[in-house]
Design a protein around this nucleic acid. Structure first.
Length: 267
DNA sequence: ATGTCCACCTGCTGGC
DNA sequence: TGCCAGCAGGTGGACA
């Protein structure tokens, strides 16, 4: 589920559950996900009060009054359930607050991760230090495309250039900008870059808005992909008619991953 | 530096 | 509760 909008949705869902609350129990039910789960997770978090819920790129951030930040990555299949009625396979981390509310991190494929880091050092954490600027709340800068031979799809997926895009929203943003995923970054014109710079936050914000409304409806922090999927214009729609022109959406494989685009609308 | 590929892991779907 | 191939939202690290 997890590109920027899904992570944002999950963290927004956790905010009313965790923020300001004291954690009375934090358990890890296995020793590692993608990376080892900190052995002192329980010790450092039990009894701490959550001061802030945030996000950086696709990382969820939970700050505590002890100066620690829990850094959470959802990987490919990570989900968070709030106050679930039943346990599920792959429930790895359980957080219980002083109000008795529970947040459970479930990740079947275990590509997700959990780290603990001093709050003041989050931006210099090895996994976060190299990440590029956030695409929301400030202009997206695509100057780094200059001179690059790699396909624009690969550049947009590179978290060092822009934070938060994944396979789905890259496809959607490229469609909205009318640019084919195969174009070399350096050959994307200034005009196209400007369209892309506008399309990226637009697509992400629409997805967040959808997630938010679903979140309110279901009172869940479960960022399950599904909110926005009915609004995808190209992703997963190979063989279907383009919503813009009726041409058939194509699927190609770039560096082992699916790309979808309209051969007529995207140049 | 840049571009490309692989590995990590489980679950689901569709074809046979 | 059939089997197998192919697919899936990420990304660090190893290569040329």
């Amino acid at each position: 589920m997890p590109e920027l909008p899904e992570v944002e949705t999950v963290m927004r869902g956790l905010k009313p559950v965790l923020e300001g609350r004291r954690l009375v129990r934090v358990d890890a039910r296995r020793a590692d996900l993608r990376w080892p789960i900190p052995a002192d997770l329980r010790q450092r978090l039990t009894g701490a009060r959550v001061t802030r819920i945030g996000r950086r790129a696709k990382y969820g951030l939970i700050d505590t009054d002890r100066g620690d930040t829990l850094i959470l990555h959802l990987g490919m299949s990570g989900r968070v359930r709030v106050d679930p009625e039943v346990d599920e396979k792959h429930d790895h981390i359980v957080i219980v607050t002083d109000e008795g509310r529970r947040a459970i991190f479930n990740d079947a494929r275990r590509f997700g991760s959990v780290h603990l880091c001093a709050t003041a050092a989050v931006e210099s954490h090895p996994l976060i230090a190299g990440i590029g600027p956030e695409p929301l709340g400030r202009p997206v800068d695509l100057a780094a495309f200059k001179g690059r031979a790699a396909p624009v799809k690969a550049l947009l997926l590179d978290q060092r250039l822009i934070a938060g895009l994944g396979n789905i929203y890259v496809a959607e943003a490229l469609f909205e900008a009318g640019v084919r995923p195969t174009r070399a970054g350096g050959k994307v014109t200034m005009k196209e870059r400007a369209r892309l710079a506008a399309a990226i936050p637009a697509v992400l914000n629409r997805a967040i808005d959808k997630g938010g409304s679903t979140l309110r409806d279901y009172r869940q922090a479960d960022g399950e992909l599904g909110y926005f999927q009915h609004e995808f214009k190209v992703y997963g729609r190979a063989g279907e008619a383009c919503v813009g022109c009726g041409a058939t959406i194509k699927r190609i494989v770039q560096s082992g991953r699916s790309s979808f685009y309209c051969p007529a609308c995207q140049k």
